[in-house]
């Protein structure tokens, strides 16, 4: 895949609102649902590996998918596309700090773009869950991970490693399910 195309896909994801999850939602639509570049399982595995890397998850996912699509150049194109919109708008708004601090525009975002962005996140979560939903062990692990994260605030990296080890000990290849 051409570097320009990789840049474009990640630039679209980088325009997403709602932080890492918003980006995940757009990426899922672009590379899994629409273009079928990676399968749902590969996407989720990349996401899981990305969460283990000690930096922002989507940064690591961009490196992982960028590399698969276009080697080292692909990682640079993906990272540039992903971070450019955030960098330009963040620095621009910081430069305008004093002027913007008290305007009503900030308050309006909470009833406009942020909830709309959240809907994309939920839609992507449901879509990704389909790959796990028809297999009981994965469902159990998903619910356990949800509870561990939400109620007990267990570190996500620990949840992933524990779930992976549990899977390695108790589960075979997906075909046996």
């Amino acid at each position: 895949m051409s570097l320009g195309r990789i840049f474009w896909i990640f630039f679209r994801a980088g325009l997403a609102f709602g932080g890492g999850l918003g980006i995940l939602a757009v990426l899922e639509r672009e590379v899994v649902t629409r273009r079928h570049i990676v399968t749902r399982e590969e996407f989720l595995t990349t996401y899981a590996l990305g969460r283990i890397v000690p930096t922002g998850t989507m940064t690591a996912v961009a490196v992982g998918i960028g590399h698969r699509l276009g080697g080292f150049g692909g990682t640079v194109a993906a990272l540039l596309g992903l971070t450019l919109p955030a960098f330009v708008s963040t620095v621009g708004l910081t430069a305008a700090y004093r002027q913007l601090q008290d305007t009503r525009g900030f308050a309006l975002l909470s009833v406009t773009l942020l909830p709309a962005a959240l809907s994309l996140v939920v839609a992507a979560a449901v879509n990704l869950a389909r790959s796990a939903i028809d297999r009981r062990p994965e469902m159990v692990l998903a619910v356990a991970a949800l509870i561990a994260s939400l109620l007990f605030h267990v570190n996500p990296a620990i949840i992933l490693l524990a779930s992976g080890l549990g899977g390695a000990l108790l589960l075979g290849p997906p075909t046996s399910a």
Binding site: L21, L24, E41, L44, T45, Y47, A48, L49, R51, A124, A125, L128, A129, S131, A132, R135, P137, E138, M139, V140, L141, A142, V143, A144, A145, L146, I147, A148, S149, P156, I159, L160, A162, S163, G164, L165, G166, G167, A168, L171, P174, A177
Partner: peptide, 12 residues
């Protein structure tokens, strides 16, 4: 991998 996928869905 199956364990990772299950946990990823829950974490998302």
């Amino acid at each position: 991998t199956r364990g990772l996928i299950g946990a990823s869905v829950g974490l998302i």
